[in-house]
Design a protein around this nucleic acid. Structure first.
Lengths: 243, 243
DNA sequence: ACGAATTTGTGCGTATGTATT
DNA sequence: TAATACATACGCACAAATTCG
């Protein structure tokens, strides 16, 4: 850290850095001084302190509670979610000792656009089922998925999912004994307001976005899905080779 | 003042929702009205509009440029980064048609704490090299890594990395012909201010955090690393089975 | 049971800094 | 140089939630 000239660095950022250093050696649960005191101590306005504290809260280092104070936050444990050739939500959640659940948010029939037809290896304009599903572990919302299924091959997939709350079960009822993951692409972004509602999350939360294609035993795509995992609640694990 | 029962919803959030609806059907690059006009249109103070626009900017929907205006944002293309048993930064970047580069930010000798000793399968307190490295593609910073190496086994790793800018090369100079990825854990969080500086990024950017362990041909850990990828610039690809 | 004090949250007005045109 | 527009900061006031006498 370059000491001396803080030129080009705003005050609230300097205050945030100062507070971050102070709480570096603090235990989780410890209370910060009131904003007025922090402002006086650093010689700035209370708004400036608030902006600094907001930045720290956004990093997850502190948590402010109205009427009580601001506290050093404890990072919650994440659910460990293995991703591999056989990725199954229910099995992954159960392996963490939690109870899985699923709920259909919305379903509709659409026509395949260019991207979808390429992913699912079908003709553009082919009929698809588009399912919006919510997945929970021990009642805590974990992820929201948008799934695309070929409608002609799986005509009853929507009803089967609504009944069972499981993609694996629904596909089995459609006569597909097994499927496997072909490829998974992962990135991260800020949560969408609609997803924030479903995931019962802060509007500024972060999601891990997993775009994947599942195929049958003859390598034909059966599902293209885009899952948004709540980043604070999830840790994806990639085990490269079980072979 | 908006009539109706919006009880419990703050004003800036209502304005943000209104603007979000307005730009829903706008093309990327379109300019938003000035803040003063938005304020007048929604009957609120300019500060309230600013807070709303900040929320939209945090979602990535708009991009505010000082002195010019606020624009509907376009998402930039991401570098595709495969992760598997043989994850090599240089090869991954080259495969995208870009030129890889690396730079040593900082190196120090530390003693293994509990977590490090478990990851590297060594005694607590064992000497380690801790390297902070920056990785770029076509001059654009992509990721920052913190790597831990057993100091006794690889005494010259720091100098070798500084010379070559490549972990693979540095380990080869230490007599290790090959290594492979044992496991990779991925999550996402807000960027750390120091990393934001190194990655030449906005202070509120998102990083994909990849925690991994590399092992030699006898399954002994050679490196534990924690890489923070700039999420807007990276897409991790997991190909489950090359076998 | 109730109100005062404390503390964070929200909003307005204003002044100033700084980058772009 | 001047005008415009976003960025930062300050001061004040009040609301909302909590704590405590």
């Amino acid at each position: 850290m370059v000491s001396g000239t803080d030129e080009g660095v705003t005050r609230w950022r300097r205050v945030a850095d100062a507070i971050r250093r102070e709480i570096g050696g603090a235990a989780s649960g410890d209370q910060l001084p009131p904003e007025m005191e922090l402002a006086a101590r650093h010689g700035v306005n209370r708004h400036t302190v608030r902006r600094a504290v907001q930045a720290l809260a956004a990093e997850g280092l502190v948590r402010a509670e109205r009427g009580r104070g601001t506290f050093v936050a404890a990072p919650p444990p994440r659910l460990v979610y293995p991703i591999g050739p056989r990725t199954r939500f229910s099995e992954n959640v159960s392996a963490n000792g939690r109870t899985p659940g699923g709920r259909l948010i919305r379903a509709e029939r659409i026509a395949a656009d260019h991207a979808a037809s390429r992913l699912l290896d079908c003709a553009p304009g082919a009929p698809l089922h588009r399912l919006e599903t919510l997945h929970v572990a021990n009642g805590v919302p974990l992820s929201v998925s948008t799934s695309l299924f070929p409608a002609e091959r799986f005509p009853g997939i929507v009803q089967h999912y609504a009944e069972t709350g499981s993609v694996t079960e629904a596909l089995r009822m459609e006569g597909l004994a097994d499927y496997r993951r072909r490829e998974t692409r992962v990135t991260a972004e800020r949560i969408h307001p609609l997803d924030a509602e479903h995931l019962a999350s802060a509007p500024d939360a972060i999601v891990l976005v997993s775009a994947a294609v599942d195929v049958d035993d003859r390598d034909r795509p059966v599902q293209a899905l885009r899952t948004r995992f709540h980043a604070e609640r999830t840790e994806l694990v990639l085990q490269p080779s079980s072979a």
